[in-house]
Amino acid sequence: MHAQALQLLRFICSEIAKLDGKRVRDLIGSPLEAAATMGNVEVVEEILLSFPNALSLVNENKHGVFQIAIANRRVDVFNLIYQITTPHHLLLAQRDASYNTALHLVARLVGGTTDQASLHLRSCAPGAALQMQRELQWFKVVEKLSRPQDQEQRNIFGKTPAMIFTESHENLAKEGEQWMKDRAHSGIIIATLIATIVFTSAITVPGGTNSENGKPIFSERTGFVAFAVADALALLMSASSMLMFLGILTARYAVQDFLSSLPKRLIIALITLFLSIIFMMMAFTSVLYLVFGEEKTWVLGLVSSLANIPVLVFAVLQFKPIFDISYSTYGPAIFGKRGDRIIV
């Protein structure tokens, strides 16, 4: 069905191409604008391949196809710019009725909760902090493709792109700050509890100490070495997690921090917290082995199996947030050439 729709589109374009120039512009203008607004990259690509001059078409707001894609955050449509040999800054230099460049458009946060572009942004980047990160990624890539002087260009209201970005993203930045701090508050409490538990376990070693030399009674057993290593690692990981969460709570929360600094801290904090839980459970299992040994293996096996439950619960609850943040920060860039066909 999809292939048939594309064939029909190509046939329609070939028929329209037989008409005179004015008639062609009238027929393809609205479909091109609608496709760019909705993010239908295949329709936009076919129209541009059939009618290269469509790049110069603008709507009533004097927005070209890439300005429309930027305003509606349609990354697939915007990536078509990499399949065009025309210098990119020329495609983004078009000014609209308010004298806005592409940088001004990308600096403006998309509409409210009922706006389709806003809903698209929220679905692509769950969480206010990740939405802020995605907005910064958009701004950076358009800034890179635009002319250097466009960064200081003012629109009809006398505002530069940086001024518009700061003003329009003020509330989102506050939401992102609260989003990060809520997770940091919860995480630092858990990390502190784990650090307290494992530190206490290190002082009051299982089995007690020898009254004559002060050495732990179980020090010669293999299980005690496993306990000591796991307990030390749990303490180190929980302390590291505490420091990273503290770094999030005391951050300055400048707009640029949402691009990489804050997400990196949160990733490290969550991973080290997860590792501290794993090592804490390993230390707990080692203590059980020292106490029961081979005498009551069923007790050791049962409790050791149940000790995996906290690890699994944390993994299930936190896997998606960690994956989303890691993918958004370190994953493949969403911008770049996606097709081999040269449009013009």
Rank of each mutant, 00 (worst) to 15 (best):
Q4V: 13
A5K: 15
L6V: 11
Q7F: 06
L8S: 09
E15A: 05
L19N: 10
D20C: 14
G21D: 15
R23A: 10
R25Y: 11
I28N: 07
I28M: 10
A35W: 10
G39H: 04
E42G: 06
L49W: 02
F51H: 09
V58C: 14
N59L: 12
A71M: 14
A71K: 12
R73V: 13
V75Q: 03
F78M: 05
Q83L: 09
T85Y: 04
T86G: 09
L90T: 08
R95W: 00
D96V: 05
A102H: 00
H104L: 06
L119I: 13
L121K: 05
L121G: 03
R122H: 05
A128Q: 04
Q131E: 12
R134G: 08
L136N: 07
L136W: 12
L136Y: 08
W138T: 03
S146P: 04
D150S: 08
Q151L: 14
Q153Y: 07
I156Y: 12
F157D: 15
K159N: 12
T160V: 10
I164S: 11
T166D: 14
T166I: 11
N171P: 10
W179H: 15
K181A: 11
A184C: 09
I190V: 02
A191W: 01
A195Y: 00
T196E: 02
A202R: 03
I203Q: 15
E212T: 15
K215S: 11
S219H: 07
S219E: 07
E220T: 11
E220K: 10
R221Y: 10
A226P: 03
A226S: 07
A230T: 05
D231F: 01
L235F: 09
L236G: 13
L236I: 15
S238D: 10
S238A: 12
A239G: 13
S240D: 14
F245D: 11
I248C: 14
I248E: 13
V255W: 04
S261H: 07
S276N: 02
F284P: 02
L290K: 01
T297G: 06
W298R: 08
W298A: 07
V303F: 05
S305C: 00
V313Q: 00
K320F: 06
K320D: 08
S328M: 03
A333H: 04
A333K: 02
A333W: 02
R338I: 03
R338N: 03
G339W: 03
D340M: 11
